[in-house]
């Protein structure tokens, strides 16, 4: 059983972190930061899969590096770049390496990234990928061929609580659970009230939800997300709060994140911290949140 699964079953408030592999082979910086700021402070660390469709080191390799450091990884897997052969193969590879937490995502479209000319795959999607994992766990592949040894995963998925309309998101969340999702990490949430309403609407689902917190880096970044990032909505008051001199931004960002977590702590089973490179702030956010 993975530590993440155990922690969620244990009923305590669970903290997960996230790192994005770099573009290029120098992993020293992210691994050093993971060692300093994430190890022992979070239960598991998500490793993004070619995030934002910008080509970089693969999630699987960095998951393995974390594992060597005794940091439990969550292997993020999108359906953008691999067909069902490669996805199944990488799932088996992950298991062989000891990587058992897997988060299924659809993936951003290729034109949003730095290789917009490439061929998007989307042979499977987040729901059918979850079902594929379940299939592999049953000892068979997608076309019912027998496996010589079956893997076992702790299967995660994502949901966007600030989505408008929300109902199709919830329907898809239900489909994901039916397809095998055992935990959820959410897209960034900045409005505790809205999140509370979301959690009420999914209270019948009985599956652990880790609320997503993305550290605000500046008022400009918040405005940019409001205009460009799907399912993210930063209230005006927070944008105003972030309008501080540059040297005070990190402090303010940590304060806001800590406050949001305190407000939402009793509504869900944990928090997923996405620092976008500000890993140094993770221990401070945890402290500010009173965890």
């Amino acid at each position: 059983m993975t530590r993440l699964k155990k922690a969620l079953e244990g009923g305590g408030f669970v903290v997960t972190g996230e790192i994005g592999p770099p573009k290029g082979v120098n992993l020293e910086k992210i691994l050093e930061e993971a060692e300093k700021y994430l190890r022992g402070k979070v239960v598991a660390v998500n490793v993004t899969d070619i995030q934002s469709a910008v080509m970089r080191v693969g999630s699987l390799a960095v998951c393995q590096k974390l594992l060597e450091m005794d940091i439990e990884p969550v292997f993020q897997m999108t359906c953008r770049d691999r067909n069902r052969l490669a996805l199944q193969s990488d799932l088996l590879s992950a298991y062989v390496l000891g990587i058992k937490n897997v988060l299924a995502l659809t993936g951003d479209y290729v034109t949003l990234g730095d290789h917009p000319q490439s061929k998007p795959v989307f042979d499977l999607d987040s729901v059918s990928l979850l079902e594929t994992m379940k299939k592999l766990e049953s000892g068979k592949d997608l076309t019912d061929n027998e496996l010589d040894g079956a893997p076992s995963f702790f299967k995660g998925a994502v949901v966007t609580p600030a989505s408008d309309p929300l109902e199709p998101q919830i329907i898809k969340m239900e489909k994901k659970i039916e397809a095998g999702a055992q935990f959820f990490q959410t897209q960034a949430v900045y409005d505790a009230k809205q999140f509370e309403e979301f959690m009420k609407k999914v209270s019948h689902l009985n599956v652990p939800v880790l609320v997503g917190i993305v550290l605000l880096k500046s008022a400009g970044m918040a405005k940019f997300m409001n205009e460009n990032v799907a399912g993210v909505s930063v209230p005006d008051e927070l944008i105003k709060e972030m309008t501080v001199p540059k040297e005070d931004r990190r402090k303010k960002s940590v304060e806001i994140a800590g406050r949001l977590i305190r407000e939402m702590k009793d509504m869900c089973q944990g928090v997923h911290l996405m620092t976008l490179g500000w890993d140094k702030e993770v221990p401070l956010v945890i402290e500010a949140a009173g965890l």
Binding site: T106, S128, K172, K175, G231
Partner: peptide, 10 residues
């Protein structure tokens, strides 16, 4: 994305 099982959230 030609998704068959619901919206992606994008």
């Amino acid at each position: 994305k030609g998704l068959l099982n619901g919206p992606c959230g994008g």
